[in-house]
């Protein structure tokens, strides 16, 4: 009776283990990473948003509370592309089958929009303004979801936002 297993047997066992564990490990890794990326992003959004008053962002065409004689308002534009993660895509696949709300995707595009508005505010601040008005938010389709077969297109939220920066009193 052998105490040691032969080299061939060892290799077979290792290969079998690897072929099962590796994809599983990658999947679990991606799910964990995805979870934390979203958590950290939401945390950063909350922190940065708290630095601006609610009245700094408006969607009207006039300039609310504009300071007379302040510097000439300027256009600000921001772009954000946020990718889905392994778990969201996987879950959305099931929801697509059974129907219902795709909460993961809803949160993803919401994050992208909030990030875009924050970038507008940050740009306005850089240029020496303290408010933005006439905020317009638009989405783009970089992955070609509307042109390619649905299964080949990656899920991403592509947001393009524009606004006019001005000075409030």
């Amino acid at each position: 009776m052998h105490v040691f297993i032969s080299m061939e047997e060892l290799v077979t066992v290792l290969v079998t283990l690897l072929s099962v564990l590796l994809p599983l490990g990658i999947a679990v890794g991606c799910i964990i990473m995805g979870h934390f990326t979203e958590k950290w992003h939401l945390q950063s959004l909350r922190e940065r948003e708290s630095g601006y008053p609610r009245s700094a962002v408006s969607q009207v065409k006039t300039f609310p509370n504009i300071q007379p004689g302040s510097q000439t308002p300027q256009l600000v534009v921001a772009e954000v592309v946020i990718a889905s993660d392994y778990w969201k895509t996987f879950w959305a696949g099931w929801v697509n089958f059974f129907g219902g709300e795709m909460r993961g995707y809803q949160k993803m595009i919401d994050r992208a929009r909030r990030e875009a508005v924050l970038r507008l505010l940050e740009q306005a601040e850089e240029k020496g303004f303290n408010a933005i008005c006439n905020v317009r938010i638009d989405t783009a389709d970089i992955t070609g979801a509307s042109t390619a077969p649905a299964k080949r297109a990656a899920s991403m939220a592509c947001v393009l936002a524009s606004a006019t920066a001005y000075m409030t009193s």
Partner: peptide, 20 residues
Amino acid sequence: MAGFRNLIGGEVSGYTELLT
């Protein structure tokens, strides 16, 4: 790189740059 981003989530800086 965008394909990999789609596994772990987060911002796809390459495509943001493309839009910019």
